[in-house]
Design a protein around this nucleic acid. Structure first.
Lengths: 334, 334
DNA sequence: GCTATAATCGTGACCGGTCACACAGTTATT
DNA sequence: AATAACTGTGTGACCGGTCACGATTATAGC
């Protein structure tokens, strides 16, 4: 670690430390000749400003905190990637904390207390401490929330889950399906509820009755997809198509189909939600509802930076998910 | 943001700032009564030390830099997760940079220049600037490298790729396969070369001849698996089993098999490498060589912290990958 | 009663930058 | 020629902590 300080550079260059500071910060009020001279000494000594010191005196760190359940997740991963790209593009650094390893309120408090953040991105499906989130906003820390579906007056990027679920259900209906199973997400998540609503709305709009036995609970895990699919197939009148609350459960369901010799999509159709990377890799490739995960992360990152720079104000976005038709859904032929 | 400083707390509590500092840092040389009094004012004023200031004067930031190609990747994700867990457990923060968005040398330099890191974890398959990495070590910045297979004298965690590839090939041979295809990784990656060597070594040990036409190039991408598999199946005498350099290519290959009506594992066996999460989700579940990704990340994180704390010294680890037999490989019956 | 020792607590300098302001030397204005 | 307005540069204070050392008081030892 070079321990060269700004005063040392000044001494070597025969100027004052303030002049060196001016050169570093590209201040115009320095003579060309002096600038060149100082720059030469900076290079020669391999001087680099101490970020801690800069942060302290500027009261700005160029670090954005990102809180996410698990970054290595198929769902959150692309969001983190997007945020990362936006941040580096804006010259910021990303301090990543996963709530998987720390209680969520603790993690937030921990990160905040450190008081070295210029802003914060919360990528969470559920706020265990909504009060704390609200507090963040009050403290006027630039903040963007991703995927947290609460009526909270904070910058956020959300997905219209209801529309997405509606589109998925409608797609199946239009393919001729009448008995459509649903494997839900966890009740506590607002996301799950919206998707259930979308499902019901589509049924209703197309004059189909809502049959509670076609709706089974799940937990956004592969295993839930297996259990859920088995439960649905065990019905006296099993569904001819299944909509799952996320792609992972769709994959689980497909495994059950394969084991029972059911062909997708000839014998049964299936549609997921999210369009995680793996959805392209399933056999057959999974029809699903795409959330633009990477873009959501990118938007959040860019907006945080713009807020800090004063070039952006509010961000209240609800993105429309998109139906991606692959090969796991087909017209009902029997 | 509370803007309460240590001197303000001192003033309110009627003591000196140094005493407050002692209370914060749990110094023993402060009277019980005073401590309580100070603690009360700290709580009352909701005071939290300014991390920037602490970092500056202590010359320590508690931040560890992590550089990775892409954090949201099925391969690197778990590594990042592991590192994250270890770091938070040790009271450190993680500054994450992805080289996907920045040239690798630039990213490293950028992160270093900031001079706010206590250590660095490099999770890379390839060093575009090995010299720079070496430089890092020389500057005595605590550093751990993951997956970078160079004979470089730096703390690292690697995988014995040769043994892994050997085990994979051996597994197929023991199942009776004689014509075993290999879809490689990119030539430039040392990882790929080691795996090719392992493949050849196993063949040789079991008295099988190495047939170059059974070895096709790939790029650790799904598409490579497709192209590679098609190429191998087009041979006059196609292989009865295929070993791919990573799981993603195995998934691609399986898609080709499915399209051609080849059943796995009855008609053809396939084995991957890495054991990414998806490997469990394929149909049938993929036999593969497991790298303990999460654990590698965790080890790196823990070791960095221990190095900083002075409780650890060297780390030169080469982990043994493990053969995970699932359902994509079977005895040759024809 | 007087000093040695420990327990508490306070002061000044410092970490390495930035900011506000002062100041000298030129050039332009009246 | 005197004043004004720039340019270019330097000085001191400050950001909010920590560290080294010194000062004060209380207790113990002789």
């Amino acid at each position: 670690m070079s321990r060269v300080t700004i005063r040392e550079v000044a001494r070597h260059a025969g100027v004052s430390y303030q002049t060196v500071s001016r050169v570093i910060n590209n201040s115009p009020e320095v003579a060309e000749e002096t600038r060149a001279q100082v720059q030469r000494t900076i290079d020669a000594l391999d001087y680099h400003p101490n970020a801690q010191a800069v942060s302290l005196s500027r009261n700005r760190s160029n670090i954005i905190g990102v809180i996410v359940d698990r970054a290595g997740d198929a769902f959150w991963g692309p969001i983190v990637d997007g945020a990362s790209q936006a941040l580096t593009k804006h010259g910021r650094f990303m301090l990543l904390t996963e709530t998987d390893h720390l209680e969520q309120p603790t993690a937030i408090a921990e990160l905040l207390r450190s008081r070295r953040l210029d802003g914060m991105i919360l990528a969470l499906p559920l706020a265990t401490s909504l009060e704390q989130v609200r507090q963040l906003a009050i403290e006027r820390l630039p903040l963007v929330i991703i995927d947290l579906q609460y009526p909270i007056d904070v910058d956020h990027i959300a997905i219209d889950n209801l529309s997405g679920a509606y589109a998925a259900t409608e797609h199946l209906i239009q393919l001729g399906h009448r008995r459509i199973g649903l494997i839900c997400g966890p009740d506590i998540l607002p996301v799950s509820q919206s998707r259930l609503e979308g499902y019901r709305a589509a049924l209703s709009d197309y004059g189909l009755v809502y049959d509670p036995e076609l709706v089974v609970p799940g937990e956004f895990r592969l295993a839930s997809g297996i259990v859920g699919a088995e439960q649905l197939l065990a019905l006296a009148k099993p569904p001819t198509a299944i909509f799952t609350g996320d792609d992972l459960m769709a994959i689980g369901a497909m495994r059950v189909f394969a084991q029972r010799g059911l062909r997708v999509p000839q014998d049964i159709s299936i549609i997921g939600f999210d369009d995680i990377e793996y959805a392209q890799y399933t056999h057959p490739p999974l029809t699903t509802i795409r959330q633009p995960l990477y873009r959501m992360g990118y938007m959040a990152g860019a907006h945080i930076c713009n807020t800090i720079d004063g070039t952006a104000k509010q961000l209240r976005v609800t993105l429309m998910p998109e139906l991606i038709v692959r090969e796991s859904t087909a017209r009902l032929t029997f």
